[in-house]
Write a protein that binds this DNA or RNA. Structure first.
Length: 800
DNA sequence: AGCACGCCGACT
DNA sequence: GTCGGCGTGCTC
């Protein structure tokens, strides 16, 4: 008897292991590891993943698999092993990891129905309204459950559990030609002369002789009505079938084909070691450090070209917000239909279809956001992570994995190179490159030898002193007007959307806080409400101060909305277009805004994060950063690094082509090294300076981190448990490790739950993972009962 | 995570 | 005496 080992779809500690199931005779040889199956689990029926097959089992009350949910495995052997590894490293449940590796469409939905079994019981006619079955949801709504329960107990009705697969393929009609040439010619003779369309159709078949053809295409090309096709189906010339149709998000776009460009010396030098590694089938991690506009993408493209020539496949990861049509175009332009695109702005169906293209080996290249690192290729030749320093490569929910770590693991599995590309590498990666763990490749010159644009830092405190209280310094304002006169374009960057960040009473200093979270409420002008960005709590804008009843309530902090209003007031003739989460939620909005700006229909592009990347328009000659220090003062040891990276990125948007550009950076802390060195575009010095800071603070890359967060609705309880955990961990780590805590989380309360944490800094701690696992196991019992939640984040990016 | 089982108090 | 409240533990 074949036994399948199954990971069931129950994310809990007690079920995070394999369960054995019998494979029914009729599925033997069909059910294989990596397939999803429907299995009975207790009284219900749920989804599971077969991870292995074996011949016998010790389990006595063995149940059988109900049915497979896939025709072919959705996880290959490599991905299954990768899943086990990830679950171990990130302290996650295996089932959570498997779900993270697959498109959301493959996550099952469950449904229950109640069916009557005894048709003679007249009482049931009322309950079921004469029908045979009723859905659980409806029974619940109509409050029939108590009565139905009784009937279930009496054996007059039963509950049936369904596993519903959401992975629906879109199908289209097609026909297969069964008749050979002779048969067709024979038929042509016997058809009556008035069967014009059938004759036309057969002649078409004789000319083109297709094997299988989509019905709608046949109608168009043979110029016959469907009736003619139906007639031939009846005569047995065709048999009908359904073909899978891909929901192609780029269906209506033509991509202009591009040819490889001549490489610069720099690029060729960077290219050689990569090619070497590809040719030797050898895993190596490269850090491609290239200033903005130095042509990293062309290096990626040509490396991929080589990989494809060798019959292998490529994964390219790009940060979600940089995954613009412009970016996709570069890859589709070079590799055409060999490219699949995966990111969260696609619909669930589109994501599924793009993934299917990979599974069916119909593409060679995947360009996608974080989760594309799991693309089910079997013969990977290269993995590229562009903008490797981006924090969006770290997933902030379980499984809390970093795409960089996963990419390197897969690179090892496939003996292929991994390329990390950035103009501002993360300190972690650059440090590894310095140590020789990664192979450092440099592109130090911009393409077509354009100088990096000069950056001028404006001290906004000085502006204040001279009486300028607007959000634009005199220098920036003058320069914007100058560009307007010249018909050149300006990009204004502000890392904050919305209108004002908070409101404060000018008389007593009262700042409105969320009653459920320790965070100030944000003013939203469009709805004229105060909103909490953490729990979604909303309330009206106070007309007078709740503390001192003063009416001097003022709006502080600026968001993109407010800047837009100001701009329109100050320079009415300027055509401003705003780009942030609020204006890009609708599908395709992203693309429309950029097209609009590119075609010169706007003078000023005002936006957040998302305009910092990839934007490459020839007419941009001025970049303004309205407030460089918005993220500098966050309680985050990476604040300086993030500021430096962002400023460098934004600056890189100016003067990339014939026209030279310049950058104006407004700040209240012009003396800070991250702003100074970003203005000088001096990564190396920033790296040295910041490394010193990290060494002093015992932070990465000198130390690894593990963050344990405990939440509870009672403050004291949260503190007590965090103390116990800290004490336990203190005893189980070496002297070299540093344990901080318990301390309140940077946001001490979210959603009425208090948050306490303890942070472990360590260099080498082989037993840490198992100690942390013990913490989870021990407190999990309390977790459910007493309302605790304990989460562990290995190498966190977000300390909140 | 569900769901059943089982042990306690409040009621027809 | 029974209904139903939720704490406990299991699911191949």
């Amino acid at each position: 008897m074949t036994i399948a080992q199954v990971i069931v779809d129950v994310p809990a500690l007690g079920t995070d292991r394999v369960f054995d199931y019998g494979v029914p005779k009729k599925w033997e040889g069909i059910i294989r590891p990596g397939m999803r199956v429907a299995v009975p689990f207790g009284p219900r029926s749920i989804q599971g993943f077969v991870v292995d097959l074996k011949e016998d089992t010790d389990v006595e009350k063995l149940k059988d698999i109900k049915q497979p949910l896939d025709l072919a495995p959705v996880l290959n052997e490599e991905l299954l092993n990768l899943g086990h590894w990830m679950a171990y490293e990130t302290l996650s449940f295996k089932i959570s990891v498997f779900h993270a590796m697959l498109p959301v469409a493959m996550k099952a939905k469950y449904e229950k129905i109640i069916r009557r079994t005894d048709n003679s019981a007249i009482l049931l006619d009322d309950l079921f309204e004469g029908k045979q079955k009723i859905s659980w949801k409806e029974a619940e709504k109509r409050n029939l459950l108590p009565a139905l329960h009784k009937q279930i107990e009496n054996g007059n009705a039963e509950v049936i559990y369904f596993v519903k697969d959401r992975a629906r393929k879109k199908l289209k009609k097609a026909v297969r030609v069964n008749a050979g040439i002779e048969e067709l010619e024979e038929l042509l003779q016997t058809l009556p002369a008035n069967a014009v369309n059938q004759i036309k159709l057969i002649q078409f078949l004789l000319n083109v002789s297709p094997d299988t053809i989509e019905t709608s295409i046949l109608v168009k090309e043979a110029e016959v009505p469907t009736a003619a096709i139906n007639a031939l189906i009846k005569k047995g010339v065709f048999s009908e079938l359904l073909m899978e149709e891909y929901r192609d998000p780029y269906k209506h776009r033509d991509f202009e084909r591009t040819e490889p460009l001549e490489l610069t010396n720099d690029q060729r030098e960077a290219m050689n070691p990569i090619l070497q590694s590809i040719n030797d089938d050898r895993h190596e991690t490269f850090l491609l450090y290239g200033v903005t506009g130095s042509g990293k993408t062309e290096v990626y493209l040509q490396a991929i070209q080589e990989v494809i020539v060798q019959g292998k496949e490529a994964i390219v990861l790009v940060p979600e917000i940089a995954l613009t049509p412009q970016m996709v175009e570069r890859f589709k332009g070079r590799f055409g239909s060999d490219v699949a695109v995966l990111h969260s702005r696609l619909s669930i169906g589109e994501q599924y279809d793009e993934w299917r293209k990979v599974q069916r080996k119909e593409v060679k290249v995947v360009v996608g956001a974080r989760s594309a690192v799991f693309a089910p290729f079997e013969n990977l030749g290269i993995i590229i992570i562009d903008e490797e320093h981006e924090s969006s490569y770290k997933q902030e929910e379980t499984p809390r994995y970093h795409a960089r770590d996963v990419a390197i693991k897969r690179g090892e599995n496939h003996h292929c190179p991994v390329i990390l590309g950035s103009a501002t590498p993360s300190l972690e990666s650059f440090a590894r490159a310095q140590k020789g763990v990664y192979h450092l490749l440099c592109l130090s010159k911009r393409m077509n030898d354009r100088e990096l644009p000069p950056v001028s830092v404006v001290d906004m405190r000085e502006e204040m002193r001279t009486g300028n209280r607007s959000m634009f310094s005199t220098e920036l304002f003058e320069k914007i007007k100058d560009r307007l006169d010249k018909g050149e374009q300006t990009v204004l960057f502000l890392n904050r959307r919305g209108h004002s960040t908070f409101i404060m009473c000018r008389d007593c200093g009262y700042v409105m806080q969320c009653p459920h979270c320790d965070i100030s409420m944000t003013y939203h002008r469009s709805t004229n409400e105060m909103k909490c960005h953490y729990c979604g709590f909303q309330t009206t804008v106070p007309v007078e101060c709740p503390e001192c009843s003063s009416s001097h309530i003022r709006y502080f902090g600026m968001g993109t909305q407010k800047v837009e209003e100001e701009l329109v007031k100050l320079i009415p003739e300027a055509r401003v277009i705003r780009m942030d989460v609020d204006t890009t939620t609708r599908k395709g909005a992203h693309e429309r805004i950029l097209d609009h700006f590119q075609s010169g229909k706007a003078d000023i592009l005002l936006g957040t994060q998302m305009i910092a990347k990839g934007l490459d328009f020839p007419n941009i000659t001025l970049v303004g950063v309205l407030s460089a220090d918005t993220m500098l003062h966050l309680p985050d040891f990476r604040a300086a690094e993030k500021t430096f990276q962002l400023l460098t990125q934004v600056s890189g948007r100016a003067g990339r082509h014939e026209l030279s550009g310049e950058v104006v950076v407004q700040t209240y802390t012009p003396e800070h090294y991250s702003i100074q060195l970003a203005a000088l575009q001096d990564y190396q010095r920033f790296y040295n300076q910041e490394m010193t800071m990290r060494k002093i603070g015992s932070y990465p890359p000198y130390y690894y981190l593990a963050l344990v967060t405990v939440t509870h609705d009672d403050l004291l309880q949260a503190v007590t448990v965090t103390e116990k955990i800290s004490a336990f961990l203190q005893q189980n780590i070496s002297k070299e490790a540093i344990l901080l805590g318990p301390v309140a989380s940077p946001i001490p309360k979210i959603n009425d739950r208090y948050r306490y944490q303890c942070l472990i800094k360590y260099k080498r701690e082989p037993n840490l993972l198992s100690s942390l696992r013990k913490v989870l196991e021990h407190y999990n019992k309390q977790t459910a009962r007493d309302g605790f939640s304990v989460t562990i984040d290995i190498n966190p990016y977000n300390m909140m």
